[in-house]
C-alpha cells in the first residue's frame, strides 16, 4: 500500500558514513502522526546521499510502514535498519506532504 501513497518517493540512502545523521520528530499519538525529518547532519549518510530534506515525512523504512507506530518504535526501526549488516543501504519511502 505504501507505493500507492500520493506523491511519495523512494529514497535509497547508502551507509556511506558511521552515522545516519537525521533527527526525527513525531509518531502515533502525537501531533505529528508520522515521523518528520527535522535535522540533517552534515557528514552523515543522509546528508551524503543528498536526497533527504528537512520537512519530509517518512512513510516506510525498508518496506515497513511507520503508520500507527509510536515515536520510539519508529526511531528503533530506523536505527536497526542502519545498524544491520544485511544491507548496505536504507530505503525510505518519503512524502513532502504532512
Amino acid at each position: 500500500p505504501g507505493l500507492l501513497e500520493p506523491m511519495s518517493t523512494l529514497v535509497r540512502v547508502p551507509k556511506s558514513a558511521n552515522t545516519l545523521g537525521i533527527a526525527i520528530e513525531g509518531g502515533a499519538n502525537t501531533r505529528q502522526p508520522l515521523p518528520r525529518i527535522v535535522t540533517i547532519q552534515r557528514g552523515g549518510s543522509a546528508h551524503n546521499c543528498g536526497q533527504l530534506k528537512v520537512g519530509q515525512v517518512i512513510l516506510e523504512v525498508n518496506g515497513i510502514s511507520l503508520r500507527g507506530r509510536e515515536h520510539r518504535e519508529a526511531a528503533c526501526l530506523i536505527a536497526e535498519a542502519f545498524k544491520t549488516k544485511e544491507k548496505e543501504y536504507i530505503d525510505f519511502l518519503i512524502t513532502e506532504f504532512n
Binding site: 545516519l20 520528530e25 513525531g26 502525537t30 515515536h71 520510539r72 526511531a75
Partner: peptide, 15 residues
C-alpha cells in the same frame, strides 16, 4: 481537527 490539537508534541530523536 480539535482532537488533533489535544495530542501532545513529539520528542525528537537523533539517529
Amino acid at each position: 481537527r480539535e482532537k488533533r490539537l489535544t495530542l501532545p508534541p513529539s520528542e525528537i530523536t537523533l539517529l
